[in-house]
């Protein structure tokens, strides 16, 4: 405990120095093209490769191509919520204003990518498994994640005093993070209809490299795209808060004088 105040103070200084809203606008503007263009390039390459040039699977045939959209969407659904939880931590402990703005902007993007994951999963499950939906542990825990996103979106906008909304949403984001390991390990802990992960840290991927490459490219591309959209939206949100500040204080004072 004796060392922690300095640690907390130091990390706090770090965040305030490198992530204060003014600094973020400069950094974000410089970062944006480096996220946007590689994202477009890699996503188009990965998905084009997956759709037209990668081989059909020995048992699933061409339906396996849905994987190149579904798997990156699933990774980003979890990663986006992890981002939301980190923002929640920064908001609750360090009261970081940028973390709150970012949390507001991550929510809808993350919820949409989770919806995409569920929809493409359904579109894959119908021809392969023979059903649109089952209540197995993997599918259900991802559906829970989707509702957590929806709850976060609603909660962070629910209060007249935005600070209260930020606080409530940050708590929800942190509490909901419990769902992330459940999603990850659901296919190992319980029998599910959903197959286990093909790519693991411990073993060789049980996927042909001719399918792994397009998957890796589209996952990287979609990940960069997610980051690009979140950065762009957060930059816009910072500008909007600056616009509100300019509109409220100096103008009104100027008019009154």
């Amino acid at each position: 405990m004796s060392a922690s105040p300095t640690f907390v103070a130091r990390t706090g200084n770090f965040f305030h120095r490198y992530a204060n809203p003014g600094q973020f606008l400069k950094l974000g503007a410089r970062l944006q093209p480096w996220l946007t263009w590689p994202a477009i390039l890699l996503t188009l390459t990965g998905l084009g490769w997956g759709l037209f040039f990668s081989p059909a699977d020995w048992q699933q045939g061409d339906s396996v191509r849905i994987m190149y959209v579904h798997v990156p969407a699933a990774i980003l659904a979890s990663a986006g919520y992890a981002g939301l939880a980190i923002c929640g931590l920064l908001s609750l402990v360090w009261r970081h204003p940028l973390a709150d703005l970012a949390a507001v902007e991550i929510g809808p993007v993350g919820a949409s990518i989770t919806a995409l994951c569920l929809a493409t999963g359904s579109l894959w499950g119908k021809p392969m498994w023979g059903t649109w939906w089952v209540w197995d542990a993997r599918l259900t825990s991802v559906l829970v994640l989707f509702f957590l996103y929806l709850g976060h979106i609603a909660l962070i906008r629910a209060f007249d005093d935005p600070q209260r909304g930020y606080k409530a949403a940050a708590i929800l984001a942190l509490a909901g993070a419990v769902d992330l390991p459940i999603i990850k390990f659901s296919v190992q802990w319980w029998n599910t209809l959903h197959q286990p992960d093909s790519i693991t840290l411990t073993g060789a991927p049980t996927m042909s490299s001719s399918m792994l490459w397009p998957l890796a490219l589209s996952a990287l591309g979609m990940g960069l795209g997610f980051a690009a959209i979140v950065v762009a939206r957060t930059r816009a949100a910072v500008m909007e808060s600056r616009i509100r500040a300019l509109l409220s204080s100096p103008r009104r004072r100027g008019n009154a004088a």
Binding site: M67, G130, Q195, P196, T206, M207, M211
Partner: peptide, 18 residues
């Protein structure tokens, strides 16, 4: 009343399987 196919985590081209 219903039969679902559960495929595994193996993804390989038809030719490789052959």
């Amino acid at each position: 009343t219903e039969v679902l196919a559960k495929h595994d985590e193996t993804y390989m081209p038809k030719e490789v399987a052959e």
